[in-house]
Structures are given as structure tokens and as C-alpha cells.
């Protein structure tokens, strides 16, 4: 069964807030084009408390999470010209900024290693096989995630919130390491197939 992006969104009205993902994408574009402070305020209200939540789930103390969330949104303002809505949703892009700042704050290596993740998307008219068509559609990605079975979803989620090896995840979940890896792998393949099929890119 093939669902189109818009249908996928309508099937899950609970995620249809007053403001849609596309509206947030537009906010970033308006900042890039016009230094639009109102657009910034809209993004701040939506994303700062969520970035803070995600960072706290990753183990940051509240004060540090608050500071990094603040910094993340300020980076959105400064780096808005790098945002390319053909390549990533504003959610994924803001996630990436927060991720980079967090890595930097933990002094885990050098954040410049990850800098390409923000700029690659901006330049290059990417080769067709180098982009995941559909990944820029946040609602489609969320719909894809709802197709995962709970074990797959949990294994994938844990990869985000645990600074740890898969061995430790396997201990936390009480299943063998190979099972954790298989759940992540099959979950990822399922997500990719769903997203690509939905945009008709995998014909």
C-alpha cells in the first residue's frame, strides 16, 4: 500500500498541530531571506523546549540543556542560509545543530568532523543516489516510524539517548547483541523503504 505524504499526515491528526512542519521550514527560510525575528520567535517557542527535552533525555543536567537549547536556536539564526528544505526538514536540521553543539560541549573529539553534515546539504546539487528522497518531509518520516514494531523502535531510539556501546544497550534491553543490531538494521531498512516508496523514488 502506497500512502502519499499528505495522506500519511492526515491519517495521524494528533501530529497536525496548528503549525505544520512545512511552516517551520518556512520560518528558517524567512530568517535566511529577511532576518525575520518573528519567524525566529515561532521557531524558538516550538523547538527550544524540545531541544532541551531531548538533551535532558540524553543525560544533560537541566541547566546545561537550557543553555545548549538557547545556543542551538541562536545557531539556527546564524546558519539559516545553510538550510536546504530539499534535503532535510527543519526538525532534522535543528536536531543536527543541537547534536553538533552537544558533541562540542562534551569535548568528545572535534565538532568540525560533523560540520559537513550542515553544509553538505546546502551546496552540491547532490547526485540522485546520494540523497534520501522524502527525508525532508518530517510528517512522512514520523509516519514511517509508526510502521516499526515496538522492539525496532526502542532499539533505534536507544541509539540516540545512550552514549554507550551496543553491548550496553543489549544488556539494558536484556537481549543478545546480535538481536539489537538486527533490530536497528531491519528498522532502518524498513524506514528507508517506506520513505522511498512513498515518494516513488524506489521504483
Amino acid at each position: 500500500m502506497v500512502m502519499h505524504a499528505t495522506q500519511a499526515a492526515h491519517h495521524h491528526p494528533r501530529n497536525r498541530a496548528v503549525t505544520t512542519s512545512r511552516d517551520f521550514d518556512d520560518c528558517v527560510l524567512r530568517i535566511a531571506a529577511d532576518r525575520d525575528r518573528e519567524a525566529f520567535a515561532t521557531l524558538f517557542d516550538h523547538y527550544a523546549p524540545r531541544v532541551k527535552a531531548l538533551l535532558m533525555r540524553s543525560g544533560s543536567p537541566a541547566a546545561a540543556a537550557e543553555e545548549l537549547a538557547q545556543e542551538t536556536l541562536l545557531s539556527v539564526w546564524r546558519k539559516a542560509h545553510l538550510f536546504n528544505p530539499e534535503r532535510a526538514s527543519s526538525a532534522a536540521w535543528i536536531f543536527t545543530i543541537a547534536r553538533n553543539l552537544r558533541i562540542d560541549s562534551l569535548r568528545r573529539g572535534d565538532a568540525s568532523v560533523y560540520a559537513a553534515d550542515l553544509s553538505l546539504a546546502a551546496d552540491e546539487p547532490a547526485q540522485p543516489d546520494a540523497i534520501l528522497s522524502g527525508a525532508q518531509d518530517a510528517e512522512l518520516v514520523r509516519a514511517a516510524m509508526r510502521t516499526l514494531n515496538p522492539d525496532q523502535a526502542r532499539a533505534i531510539e536507544m541509539a540516540f539517548f545512550h552514549e554507550q556501546t551496543h553491548t550496553q544497550i543489549s544488556q539494558a534491553l536484556g537481549v543478545p547483541l546480535g538481536t539489537v543490531k538486527a533490530r536497528i538494521r531491519f528498522g532502518m531498512m524498513k524506514l528507508r523503504a517506506f520513505i522511498e516508496r512513498d515518494v516513488g523514488g524506489a521504483a
Binding site: N15, S21, Y47, R50, V51, L54, A88, S89, S90, A91, A92, W93, I94, F95, T96, A98, R99, D117, L132, A135, Q136, A138, V141, R142, M145, I156, E157, F160, L191, I195
Partner: peptide, 9 residues
């Protein structure tokens, strides 16, 4: 990263 965005949302 798209999954990260979804978790963020």
C-alpha cells in the same frame, strides 16, 4: 538525522 528530527518533534 531525519529520525532525530522526528524524535525532536
Amino acid at each position: 538525522r531525519a529520525v532525530g528530527g522526528a524524535l525532536l518533534d
